[in-house]
């Protein structure tokens, strides 16, 4: 598709938008812009629940911008009833490193109360279909997929450390959500090398 057409024209218009002196004109542009962003909820949600979310292609800032523009996409549920946060906490997101965006998604999710009050932006929100939480998926659904030179378990560990620093992963969560059991039962080869286990126990 040719993006030098309408998208480009729209970009030009928005670049000069703040120079337009007429409030009603700027108001009209603003109104349509809001409508476009609202209309993109599903598309952005689908993007966040797919392998298109790719740590090699997008930076954290890019994803932050995207979800700030269409915050309702954080509450989008895909065909398996997963929120973007849950999708990216699970092992199938490891191929392209989608799990690395989890802290950003949670941080933004907290601003918009994803999953409801006290759900830490959706991190401890129960999955509609299987009852697990993003935190449980993050700790137990390990995989051997590699992204950015790291296997899934190490990507998980990095994310858990960051969540810990952000105060979103608490010591009592290990017991409350049975995280150690989930960690030990999985078959990933990295579990044997005590990486993730050590990480959890240290915290």
């Amino acid at each position: 598709m040719d993006y030098t057409g309408d998208t480009d024209n729209l970009l030009h218009l928005l670049v000069i938008e703040n120079k337009l002196s007429l409030d009603f004109l700027r108001g009209a542009i603003n109104k349509y812009a809001r409508r476009i962003l609202d209309d993109l909820t599903n598309e952005v949600g689908m993007f966040l629940c797919s392998e298109d979310l790719n740590a090699k292609k997008q930076s954290e800032d890019d994803i932050r911008t995207l979800v700030q523009c269409a915050p309702t996409a954080l509450s989008y549920k895909n065909g398996c009833c997963s929120l973007p946060i849950q999708y990216n906490a699970a092992s199938y997101s490891f191929n392209n490193g989608g799990v690395a965006f989890l802290p950003v998604l949670i941080e933004e999710g907290m601003k918009y109360n994803v999953g409801g009050d006290g759900m830490r932006g959706g991190l401890i929100c129960e999955h509609e279909a299987n009852g697990t939480t993003g935190l449980m998926m993050l700790s137990s659904w390990g995989g051997d997929a590699t992204c950015c030179g790291k296997v899934g378990d190490l990507l998980q560990l990095d994310v858990m450390k960051r969540l810990r620093e952000m105060g979103l992963f608490k010591k009592e969560d290990i017991k409350e959500y049975n995280l150690l059991w989930g960690d030990l039962m999985q078959r990933s080869i990295q579990r044997d090398s005590t990486t993730l286990r050590t990480g959890i126990l240290q915290h």
Partner: peptide, 24 residues
């Protein structure tokens, strides 16, 4: 609204073809 749409268009090339199509 205008500002956010502008921010989105700035990163459009980093997004998936499907999402770019939808925005276009």
């Amino acid at each position: 609204g205008s500002k956010n749409l502008l921010r989105l268009l700035v990163i459009i090339n980093k997004l998936s073809p499907d999402l770019r199509d939808a925005i276009n």
